[in-house]
Design a protein around this nucleic acid. Structure first.
Lengths: 230, 230
DNA sequence: CAGTGGTCTAGACCACCCA
DNA sequence: GGGTGGTCTAGACCACTGG
């Protein structure tokens, strides 16, 4: 089934209703079982919502990671009923040093977007977000207003990552980090490093630093097969 | 399909070969499509490995979490080619205080297993593991030799959790923690708290503490639908 | 009521693995 | 070659939704 790329490719927008199984049968000249299975798998992968007696609908891109339920921090904060504010420290294009060049599989000296943003929850700084973004992935990254729309939200629109890597560490914050997050000396920080790739190559490399006392990462998970056939 | 509970229930052991699709057709008097779909879903849920031209085999319980790839720390260490050693600090039964009683949905004063273990990688302490385990879930927890077999490995055998909750924080270690992990004052620690539930109720509550400088949690993830029909 | 998705059957052809 | 899983078809009955 190399059909239906149109759906994932966004030919139908978020929330759009897609043709019924019977209509798809005719469109693709496939049997209903085949159509049904394709839709069922797309549902399992989270691309569709389906309801018996109603129809099938495109599910907008979910929070990128199924491994760590790290949603857009602004959504997180708003979901708690708190106020979110982003303070842009810098958005720029920088020359890749050796390390960055290696991470992005490009030559040293190539240009890469770089942004540093502090996120506030009720005016308390809760996250320092530093990102490097490949211009090949998001050519307009440098021209965005990230106080209006978070980098996470923007990047999610630009493209879906095929691969994500997370590393979590406890660190003693650097002096500049301490200053930006307004934390006392000796307070530990939780640092999440995330790298993403598309089919075309490395896309982003981010470091999200949280004061240990003001943030924790959590996730809750229903094991597969708890109810189902098994 | 409320058939085939036998597979998940462990009637067939790890790695065992299960009957072919055609045999299952006869056993359950179902069509091949139905059998195939059941097996396909069990494979998707990680209960089976299948190979064309070979057969279907029971996949032993995987690392419990799909959210955080936290495997048995001993496996982790051995996989890096390093030596692992576990130092049992205490394994005991304690009376539940108010907080524990609430977490385990039991009356205060009820008995709960409690263990504290330090894990060494090449004789360097890398994890302090403190667990509380419901006797209803693992009645023999107190009688195990956890220097021979890790708690994680043992608990995985006892039963599969239906639900898992993770919380990750950066913390300043308590003095006792500092001593057991032999770390300097001021070094931050990564603390992972994990709670698990079975259908019957709360099963375990664990705190895994790692020196920030000696450990990090990582995960790598292939997004669904990168290749498939989509 | 008509339309939707959920499920199952019976049969077919294929690619793959291994003796 | 014989057995395995991978895939697809054509048709059927059901449960649920909505007007």
């Amino acid at each position: 089934m190399y059909l239906m790329e149109r759906i994932a490719s966004g030919e139908w927008g978020d929330g759009a209703r897609i043709p019924s199984e019977y209509e798809l049968m005719e469109i693709f000249a496939a049997s209903r079982m085949t159509v049904h299975r394709a839709l069922r798998e797309m549902q399992a992968d989270g691309f569709l919502r389906r309801a018996q007696g109603v129809g099938s609908f495109v599910q907008g891109p979910k929070p990128q990671s199924a491994l760590l339920e790290i949603t857009d921090i602004a959504d997180d904060i708003l979901a708690r009923g708190h106020a979110h504010r982003a303070e842009i420290v810098v958005v720029e294009r920088v020359k890749a040093d050796a390390g960055l060049a290696a991470a992005f599989e490009m030559r040293a000296g190539g240009k890469i977007f770089h942004s540093v943003i502090v996120h506030f929850e009720n005016e308390v700084p809760v996250q320092l977000e530093e990102r490097f973004v490949s211009p090949a992935f998001a050519p307009d990254y440098g021209a965005q207003d990230f106080s209006a729309r978070t980098t996470a939200s923007y990047l999610q629109r630009v493209g879906r990552a095929a691969q994500v890597e997370h590393v979590i560490q406890a660190v003693s914050p650097a002096p500049l980090t301490r200053k930006l997050l307004r934390i006392a000396a000796g307070e530990p920080c939780l640092e999440l490093t995330r790298r993403t790739w598309t089919e075309a190559g490395p896309a982003t490399k981010s470091a999200l630093t949280h004061p240990g006392s003001r943030y924790s990462l959590g996730s809750r998970y229903d094991a597969p097969g708890s109810k189902k056939p098994g």
